[in-house]
């Protein structure tokens, strides 16, 4: 009969609507504004609506998520910030749109380069969030940030990130990327142990 398939289609849409309420009912209080509720709505078993109500609840980003890069600094016990960056320039070299700018310092006496950048800029208006810099950084120094809430009214004042804006603590890094951080720390400890052995020998 003509129109039967159309009715069938309407039934399917109606079913989805009903499923949303069924799931809401089953989920009870935990369905909205809780992390388990969000997880339930992004699960493959979900059958009803999957809406995440940003900004009241935010879809958590996975660990590997990449937005704009940042520079990691370690904090020494006496509160001094020590940038991991050695200004080797690999990130500036691999950057596909060439949006990383580094000024390498030189020692006034010896004329040799010093392993801390004098300045470090990233032009966010050019950056393509590809993560190449983080991938190829040999010192675990440049990493991709998770903070995506960076909309502004004025790009000329805010969109070239300098050292001050880029530097974030290792603790922050450990918080957003725990697995990567743990793996890198393990490698580092191993290296340190080996170096210690060598000096002993």
């Amino acid at each position: 009969m003509t129109g039967l398939a159309i009715l069938r289609g309407l039934w399917i849409t109606l079913k989805r609507l009903i499923m949303t309420y069924v799931e809401d009912f089953k989920g009870g209080k935990n369905r909205y504004y809780t992390s388990e509720g969000i997880e339930a709505r992004r699960d493959y078993r979900v059958r009803g609506a999957i809406t995440i109500q940003y900004p009241e609840e935010k879809l958590p980003v996975p660990e590997r998520f990449r937005y704009v890069p940042f520079l990691v600094y370690d904090e020494t016990p006496d509160g001094e910030r020590k940038l991991r960056c050695t200004s080797c320039g690999i990130c500036a070299r691999v950057c596909p749109p060439q949006c990383i700018w580094i000024v390498r310092g030189t020692d006034a006496n010896t004329g040799k380069p010093i392993p801390t950048p004098l300045a470090f800029y990233i032009d966010v208006d050019v950056c393509m969030n590809c993560g190449m810099c983080a991938e190829f950084c040999p010192f675990d120094s440049i990493k991709m940030d998770h903070d995506y809430e960076i909309a502004t009214y004025d790009r000329f004042a805010h969109h070239i990130f300098d050292l001050e804006k880029l530097a974030k603590s290792a603790a922050y890094y450990a918080k957003i990327r725990p697995t990567d951080y743990a793996a890198e720390e393990a490698v580092r400890r191993e290296k340190a142990a080996k170096a210690a052995q060598k000096t002993e020998a």
């Binding site: 691999v94 596909p96 060439q98 990383i100 700018w101 580094i102 380069p113 300045a119 070239i160």
Partner: peptide, 15 residues
């Protein structure tokens, strides 16, 4: 060809 020399080691940023 990339990488551009202006980016490092004396990368004074400009648009």
């Amino acid at each position: 060809a990339k990488p551009f020399k202006s980016r490092f080691p004396d990368g004074k940023v400009y648009r």
